[in-house]
Amino acid sequence: MRAEQISVFLENKAGRLAEVTAILGEAGVNIRALAVADTSDFGVLRLIVDDNAKAVASLKNHGFTVSKTDVVAVEVEDRPGGLHRILGILHKAEINVEYMYAFVQHSGKNAVMIFRIDNIADAVKILQENSVTVIDGDKVYTL
């Protein structure tokens, strides 16, 4: 049930993000979701793409520091309180969300959110018990 996210270290200066998107574009890699977390000096770019191996290889070739992290993709009802309900479930189970970001594409009429959670197995179980749809890793890349 887990999906793989690629993280890239970026210095906080003009043009670095565009550099990454250009490299991925040239490599024929399609970006499915993207989020940047930054400080005044540096940022971490998080990506869900359709071809992890190709993306990692092309970024490393261009000298970027890249890592892979397991995350979960969860369907969120596209209505007020949709996200709140899911966070509530996780909070009650004492599962800590390190960060999250939205997916570009919808799954049917639901939005899709990416969650970075330390204990993925427990989180998936709890979410499913509460009839929240967790999207299969394989499907996330081609949504």
Partner: peptide
């Protein structure tokens, strides 16, 4: 320079 062994996807770890 941030190499693979120093890198983390979490900003707070890097900080």
């Amino acid at each position: 320079e941030v190499g693979e062994s120093l890198f983390s996807d979490e900003v707070k770890h890097l900080q």
